[in-house]
Nucleic acid binder design. Structure first.
Length: 558
RNA sequence: GCGCCCGUAGCUCAACUGGAUAGAGCGGCAGACUUCGAAUCUGUAGGCUGAAGGUUCAAAUCCUUCCGGGCGUGCCA
């Protein structure tokens, strides 16, 4: 295990509970049970490296003042090399100050583990599926999809790093009404190219890209397919557009650093009869009923606002029906945990999907939905308008072309998923201190530049030296920051909050920059140079590891 | 109307899921390059956490009611 922070916390917790038992044996304290001992890193430095509130938690059942209990624990603590100092503080906290030895060991661990540092077995190889983006193949990806793409991708990286067996999946809605509309829209535009005056139905796809696809068909096939438009046979146009658009989506995502393990087509559900099958099953289990010619799912009995149609009056199935089959298919593939990343405009769907999971006989908790809030693009301080109706929206490709993959990814991931995101295009483009991406990358480039110094390259890092001459505050803080990485990843994975890692990367860079300005390497005595270079190497390693999780590059020079 | 999310420094956002004196960046002000990259660093000002109640040793965090904003609320996907 390489969660250095957790190791320390576990040790401290064990010592505390030993001390509690000792006090009980001595008759100083009587407790029915000892709750889990929580150790936290106080935000106030004056409160030590770690602190516990256990005395305050126990005050009730022990019928004693918190500070008294805290003092008892402190008095009964065994002498440990790890602990430099202990104190009772405030309303009853116990603050621990650690000796620095564990930090030196942390640096060594990082250098030994290399790219692997940060990984752990928290997930115990649990099979987790993360489904994200899943935009209809009826148009290019836009900025709303982009945020979901990065959130899903980075969360997948984080969770695999800490030991989950993660599969990233894209669900392609390539069946149903929308696809028919797509075919029709392209067909009509195609017809238009031959001089026909066409009127597009109100709900058809209006974007420029539809015209481009029609153009391509014309270039490739001439007027070969014109007769099909007249007979309203749009299949050819549908399939042509579908292939094109899906390819575009795949390319856009790849250029954005997002790769899926699996692309799941809705059509396979239809073709394999899985939808029909699952409807039969639900009917047998009494979850469906007929009304007004349609077949309804009793979702309101399972927590949803109202019941939902699965088979329409005309006999065709709804999107929900396919989704039911799809989710059953997920569990049948052996995923014990399924995570869906959805845009905020789909949040109304959560309860009915939970109802589905329950009706299928699984636990509601086996489906987790992460709702990602909306994105507003800003340019020159003004909101870039997004009108989907006219098809006039900013695409993922536009954003990547304008600000680059690194900045785009970082900006999308840095905020908590449930807060609305303001994406300032001008800021993302800036190559200056205001731009957090450059700030982080600059730390890495700076390190590379240091390591390229001739005097430093000559050092023999294989020689036997100790790191315990690293005692400057800036050095200690940097080591603490490095040691924290795995813990940050684990917390981030557990709370499904990938933005913590973006934050961590920034904080690490900041801590390094402070160290850099305070602790010069060149010109110091050799042993100190060796130690500091080791610390710099460890920092470089962790920066690389964290940037790789974020999918942001770590340039050697900028 | 109902449901979900949000409301924290001038602006954009954090806050280890209930902990101690609410923190970062940007912007403001004042400083630091004859040594490793100044795309950096140091210092400083800025807050009744939308409002009012409640829960407890402890609330930005949990509960209730308001007020504001976003998004939903299809036999669309």
């Amino acid at each position: 295990m390489a969660n250095l922070v957790k190791e320390v916390k576990t040790k401290l917790a064990a010592e505390i509970s030993a001390a509690l038992e000792k006090s009980q044996d001595a008759g100083d304290l009587s407790l029915a049970e000892i709750p889990e001992i929580m150790l936290e890193e106080p935000r106030e430095e004056a409160h030590g490296d770690y602190a516990t509130n256990i005395a305050m938690v126990l005050a009730g059942q022990a019928q004693r003042a918190p500070r008294e209990i805290a003092q008892l624990i402190v008095d009964n603590l065994a002498d440990l090399d790890l602990i430099a100092q202990v104190e009772v503080a405030g309303p009853g906290f116990i603050n621990f100050y650690l000796s620095d030895q564990w930090l030196y060991e942390a640096v060594e661990t990082i250098l030994e583990m290399g790219d692997d540092y940060g990984s752990s077995h928290l997930g115990q190889d649990k099979k987790v599926q993360i489904e994200f983006v899943s935009a209809n193949p009826t148009g290019p990806l836009h900025i709303g999809h982009s945020r979901g793409a990065v959130v899903g991708d980075v969360l997948a990286n984080i969770m695999s790093k800490v030991g989950f067996d993660v599969t990233k999946e894209y669900y392609i809605n390539d069946a149903g009404n929308q696809m028919e509309l797509l075919g029709q829209s392209v067909a009509l535009r195609y017809q238009e190219l031959f001089g026909a005056e066409v009127e597009l139905p109100e709900n058809s796809y209006q974007g420029e890209y539809i015209k481009e696809i029609a153009e391509k068909i014309k270039n490739e096939y001439g007027k070969e397919h014109l007769s099909k438009v007249e007979t309203e046979n749009y299949d050819f146009f549908k399939e042509f557009a579908y292939q094109r658009l899906l390819e575009n989506i795949e390319n856009d995502l790849r250029e954005f650093g997002v790769e899926f393990d699996n692309w799941f087509s809705e059509r396979t559900l239809h073709n394999q009869g899985l939808i029909k099958e699952v409807i039969e099953d639900l009917k047998e289990d009494g979850y469906l009923y007929e009304r007004e010619g349609a077949l309804w799912f009793k979702s309101s009995e399972l927590g949803d606002d109202k019941d939902r149609v699965v088979v329409k009056e005309d006999g065709s199935t709804t999107y929900l029906a396919a989704d039911i089959a799809y989710h059953q298919h997920k569990y049948q593939r052996g995923f014990t945990e399924v995570i869906n990343v959805w845009g905020a405009d789909h949040h109304g769907y959560v309860e009915r999907m939970k109802a589905v999971i329950e009706a299928l006989g699984y636990q509601r908790e086996m489906l987790e939905v992460i709702i990602v809030q909306m994105v507003t693009l800003l340019r020159e301080g003004k909101q870039v308008s997004m009108s989907k109706r006219s098809g006039d929206f900013v695409t993922l490709q536009d954003v990547v072309a304008e600000v680059g993959k690194d900045a785009a990814r970082y900006f999308y991931i840095r905020r908590s998923v449930d807060s609305h995101l303001e994406f300032d295009l001008d800021l993302a483009k800036k190559e200056s201190t205001e731009n957090p991406v450059y700030y982080i990358q600059y730390a890495h480039a700076r390190i590379c530049s240091i390591l390229a110094q001739p005097e430093i390259k000559e050092l023999d890092l294989e020689s036997d030296f100790k790191l315990n001459n690293l005692t400057d505050e800036a050095e200690l803080k940097l080591m603490q920051q490095l040691a924290r990485f795995t813990e940050e990843l684990e917390k981030s994975a557990e709370s499904r909050a990938p933005h913590h890692i973006a934050r961590y990367a920034y904080d690490l860079a900041a801590t390094f920059h402070t160290f850099y300005n305070k602790c010069i390497i060149l010109g110091e005595e050799e042993l100190l140079m060796l130690s500091r270079v080791s610390l710099v190497l460890a920092t470089k390693q962790v920066l690389c590891n964290v940037l790789s999780i974020l999918g942001v590059s770590a340039p050697e020079s900028m």
